[in-house]
Simulated scan of single mutants.
Amino acid sequence: MFLNAKLETDRLIIRPYKIEDIDQTYAVVSEKDFYQYIPEEIPDREGVRKIIEWSITQNQKNTADKIYKFNLAIIHKEDGKIIGYCGLGPDDLGMGETEIYYGISSQYRKQGLALEAAKATLEYGFEVIGLKKIMAFADYRNLPSLKILENLGMKYHFRISHLQEELSDFEGQCYYSLTAEEYLKSL
């Protein structure tokens, strides 16, 4: 379910990271503005290596009842390149929910590929893993990401505010969610 996962769409293959993905992944995440709306530090190449090694370890621990982190590489079928990432994991604010996330290379944006990857990940979360609810955070200024969440059928609930100092990077993030029941009704 996690170690050998392979999600496939018309244009994408989405799979767990392998150690040999370091350079292609670093090329994507080091693009100018890739982290514009992501409240994290931009990793250097060594940081990407550590994230990938950590992701592999997390996939070995993941179960349907507890997802530690399910980081996936997005590969463009046409050119065989890693063009981004997506996945499922514990929400960054510690609310005890499962969060969907995604990011895609600037040269592959505005083609519906991020939506395609997010939709496949959402489907996998509900249909294969059996999650009851999936949520997402998106910066209120990140209009393309907000549109993706809406196109996934996720519902907007509120904008995050009044956070403690250590979580202040998430101030202004929009909270969206979708339950398995809502997902099934939309099919």
Rank of each mutant, 00 (worst) to 15 (best):
I19S: 12
T25M: 14
L122Y: 05
R159I: 10
Q164L: 11
Q58W: 00
D79H: 12
Y85I: 11
G94E: 01
K77L: 04
I56F: 00
F2H: 01
L88Q: 05
L143V: 12
Q111F: 13
Q164M: 14
G103T: 02
L143F: 13
T179G: 11
N71V: 01
V128S: 14
H162N: 15
S106G: 13
F34A: 09
D23K: 09
E127D: 15
Y183G: 07
V29H: 06
K32R: 13
I100P: 00
Q24I: 08
M154I: 01
P16F: 00
Y102P: 02
H157M: 03
S55P: 03
G80P: 06
Y35A: 02
Y26C: 06
A64D: 13
V48Q: 03
A136P: 03
S177D: 15
I14N: 06
V128D: 15
R141C: 03
T179L: 10
G172N: 12
R11I: 07
E127H: 08
I13L: 14
S168A: 15
S145H: 03
M1E: 12
Y124E: 10
G89W: 00
L72N: 06
N59L: 11
L88R: 08
M1V: 13
L3Y: 03
H76A: 08
N151T: 00
L7I: 10
V48D: 01
E31H: 08
F158V: 10
N59H: 13
E46V: 10
H76D: 13
L115K: 08
N62S: 03
S105T: 04
A64C: 14
L93T: 04
I42T: 15
R15G: 02
I74T: 12
E53A: 10
F70D: 10
K133W: 01
E78Q: 14
G80L: 03
G172D: 12
E53H: 01
T121R: 02
I104W: 11
Y68N: 05
K69V: 00
K77V: 05
P144R: 02
V28F: 03
Y108A: 01
L122K: 15
E20M: 04
K119M: 12
D44A: 04
